[in-house]
Write a protein that binds this DNA or RNA. Structure first.
Length: 769
DNA sequence: TAGTTGGGTTTTTTT
DNA sequence: AACCCAACTA
């Protein structure tokens, strides 16, 4: 009995074919991670390859972490020295050693999207480019695409032809790249592009990595862009032991440069490649698979696959249309609560998916009201929050004064009376003398026209110097605490008040915990390394699956995950597929959306529910949308409820786009001004909503346990009517009513800020004041 | 210089 | 609806 016995024939072939290029076409849920991990084990234990010679590349830290863990379980020791990382961290590691060959300092900083934007903005100002006509967004994405395609500024300039806009973008690109270098900074795209550049200009470096990485595996290959393709091609060129795993049907990242041709043309690039198809699905029921297959079949450019399962048909797909998005949210929350109550499924096995992050809000509100534990994945990245970015800017300034952007971000945060004019004068001086902004600050007394501001600037510089000393002699944790104390950052935050000051303070605490955790887990912790780790994490990375909460996330975030019960919400033309893709002339865009639908459907193991709302508020506009074409692509016999075909539901919006109600639509006047009763869904307060108990579910029965809340239910809370309490989200309020329910105490609270809410005591986690 | 207000603007997705 | 930015006021 060996670890390979449990694999099916195709999986075995994938594991045992270790020489030469291999294309593993792995359908959703076909066990590709199992193949990869077993393959690594096989290489080490059966072929005797040194773990040091193996590299496995993924896209997310989470995927890398999981793979590392699973490899560790399979091979006894030696797994530490396998490179299992993401593209971006691989490149950072390489560049940290060799980027000086390209004229950067090895302690470069990594710019995120915000940083890029302010840089582009600066440059536009300098070049007299009107950002009303040339939006930063557009310029940034043009630059990003160029980098994904390995087009350097010079080449870009040459390719502009007579196109005025392109010429302008080329100018900005040129300046932008120069500014990055001057700030000793790189952006996300640079990480890949510069590594390729390094390999091409320094054959000795490339060779050393080729000698090291004799066996290379790439996960989610359908998501690679041209630069990543080239990187892998170079690394694998010497040994050609390259195994790529992917599913062209799950390619959903075209917007960030993913080139689906990379996987479609693999056999063209590597004619000797072995192609293996993993078609047995171990995840979903036949009905779920049939639905997924029925949808994806409508795409033209794809490799035919026939996913099958030996699981039974399972439940039919539920389709639930609603009048508006409120009802949709209510249904999803009620349905999950019901299933949990009846012991059908636990919260942690449910996921609610949607196209855009904005859709989370309504669902979230409803989950709070009903006291269902949930987590929203994604949205604003932890490290993109203002307070975190501020503190990171302090850390970056302490670490590397060459990063002008960070210095400028914090020089007047909290307020020190250093204004725009002063900053401009310092910048002029820095430009003139070709020194960094921070270095200019250190000689502020030489800068003409600053007047009284000089003392403020020198005070700032000495503060940073004190911080540097602190770091050197007392470490990271001491540094961040010193920064917080000296700047009185928290106090300034409170002074600026807002109800989210508390949440921000919590974020700051979380950052401190991360710093402490980092220091504890590393033998030689450095500030630079910490900043680097922090720059490359996403929200999905920190997903923990042991806390039994319903997960709310976008379809993109859900890729690679699976859940027993899945709800796809907002299944409407104009929402999903999105309005942009419907109106685009590029038919490839709708195919990408369809792949996204395929990804969503195939997340479900047992049960899938599709929801649609006839009416929904988007960006402050009420829209009427037809049921998503993707729902209609599913054969009705797989559904328990037909998509409505009646004129009433479909007539005024069958094709969606031209019938949406908007200010730009000729229908706007008649439809909006006359305000048909149903058009404006009033924002309902919790108190107006039916209490959860009355939603027609009947007896809550005997299940006395509130799963996953972590709090025992049934006990009487320590507060009573009339008491003042605090809720983590709603703040302070007065308890109006506390009544025992069949399962748990139901508490009504009148919050000072948000009004009355009814919730279950076990979930509300109210603190008596 | 700092704080406020009003206007204009929102590809959806993220390493 | 929400956010960002520029212009304005104190």
């Amino acid at each position: 009995m060996s670890i390979y016995d449990t694999l099916n024939e195709q999986q075995k072939q994938g594991v045992f074919t270790v020489e030469g290029p291999v294309l593993l076409l792995a359908g959703a849920g076909s066990g590709k991670t199992r193949v990869l991990t077993h393959r690594i084990a096989y290489l080490i234990e059966e072929i005797g390859i040194n773990p040091w010679n193996i590299m496995a590349i993924t896209f997310t830290n989470k995927a890398a972490g999981e793979m590392k863990e699973r490899v560790e379980d399979l091979v006894g020791f030696g797994s530490d020295s396998i490179w299992v990382t993401t593209f971006h961290s691989t490149c950072v590691r390489i560049l940290r050693r060799f980027i000086d060959r390209l004229g950067y300092d090895n302690n470069f900083v990594i710019y995120d999207t915000d940083d890029q934007k302010s840089l582009v903005k600066d440059i536009c100002k300098r070049l007299n480019i009107d950002t009303k006509m040339f939006k930063e967004r557009v310029i940034m994405s043009a630059i990003s695409s160029a980098k994904d395609e390995l087009i350097l500024p010079n080449e870009y300039s040459m390719g502009t032809g007579g196109d005025y806009r392109k010429q302008k973008i080329a100018q900005v690109y040129q300046e932008y790249q120069a500014a990055l270098k001057k700030n000793n900074a790189v952006d996300f795209d640079d990480l890949i592009m510069l590594t390729v550049e390094l390999f091409k200009s320094c054959p000795d470096v490339l060779e050393s990595y080729q000698n090291r990485f004799k066996y290379i595996m790439v996960d989610e290959y359908q998501d690679t862009n041209t630069a990543q393709f080239e990187l892998i091609r170079l690394l694998a060129a010497a040994n050609r032991n390259l195994c790529v795993v992917g599913d062209d049907d799950q390619s959903i990242y075209k917007f960030r440069g993913a080139n689906i041709r990379n996987i479609l043309d693999f056999e063209h690039h590597y004619p000797e490649a072995t192609v293996i198809r993993l078609e047995q699905n171990y995840r979903s029921t036949q009905n779920v698979l049939d639905a997924a297959n029925a949808v994806i079949r409508n795409n033209s450019r794809r490799k035919e696959k026939a996913l099958w399962t030996d699981k039974g048909a399972g439940n039919r797909i539920h389709f639930r249309p609603f009048e508006n998005a409120y009802e949709e949210a209510e249904f999803v929350a009620d349905d999950i609560a019901r299933k949990q109550r009846e012991g059908i499924v636990e919260y942690g096995e449910c996921a609610v998916l949607f196209r855009t992050n904005a859709q989370a809000r309504l669902l979230e509100e409803r989950f709070v009201v009903e006291g269902i534990p949930y987590d929203v994945v994604g949205g604003v990245n932890f490290y993109s929050r203002r307070e975190i970015k501020d503190l990171l800017a302090y850390l970056k300034t302490v670490d590397n004064g060459r990063d002008d952007l960070s210095v400028k971000r914090i020089i007047n945060v909290p307020k020190r009376g250093i204004g725009a004019t002063t900053i401009a004068k310092v910048q002029d001086y820095a430009d003139m003398h070709e020194i960094s902004f921070f270095d200019a600050l250190t000689v502020a007394e030489n800068i003409p026209g600053l007047g009284k501001s000089v003392s403020k600037l020198t005070a700032f510089v000495s503060m940073i110097r004190v911080f540097r000393g602190k770091l050197e002699f007392a470490g990271l944790e001491a540094l961040i605490k010193e920064i917080l104390e000296t700047t009185e950052y928290i106090k300034e935050m409170d002074a600026a008040d807002e109800e989210d000051a508390l949440a921000r303070a919590e974020n700051v605490d979380e950052l401190i915990s991360k710093i402490v955790a980092y220091e504890e887990t590393h033998d030689e912790p450095t500030l630079s390394e910490f900043l680097e780790e922090v720059a490359l994490v996403s929200d999905v990375d920190r997903l923990e699956d042991d806390n039994n909460r319903v997960l709310l996330m976008t379809l993109h975030s859900a890729k690679g995950l699976e859940f027993a019960h899945v709800y796809l919400t907002g299944m409407e033309d104009g929402v999903f597929p999105s309005y942009m893709t419907i109106t685009s002339d590029d038919t490839g865009e709708i195919e990408e959306e369809r792949r996204l639908a395929y990804v969503g459907i195939t997340r479900a193991k047992e049960d899938l529910t599709l929801c649609a709302a006839k009416m929904r508020m988007i960006r402050g506009e009420t829209q009427y949308n037809a049921v998503s074409r993707f729902v209609k692509e599913i054969p009705t016999e797989l559904l328990d409820n037909k998509p409505p075909m009646s004129r009433q539901y479909d007539a005024d919006m069958d094709t969606g786009a031209e019938n949406r109600i908007s200010k730009y639509n000729p229908m706007y006047n008649t439809m909006m001004r006359s305000k048909p009763v149903a058009t404006v869904a009033p924002k309902r307060t919790a108190a107006e909503n039916k209490p959860f108990i009355a939603s027609g579910v009947g007896d809550f029965g005997k299940l006395g346990i509130v799963k996953g809340a972590g709090t025992a239910s049934g006990g009487k809370p320590d507060y009573d009517a009339g008491d003042r309490v605090r809720h983590i989200k709603y703040g302070e309020g007065t308890v109006i009513d506390l009544e025992p329910g069949p399962r748990d105490y139901k508490v009504t609270v009148d919050f000072d800020d948000v009004g009355q809410k009814i919730m279950y005591a076990a979930f509300a986690k109210l603190k008596k004041l």
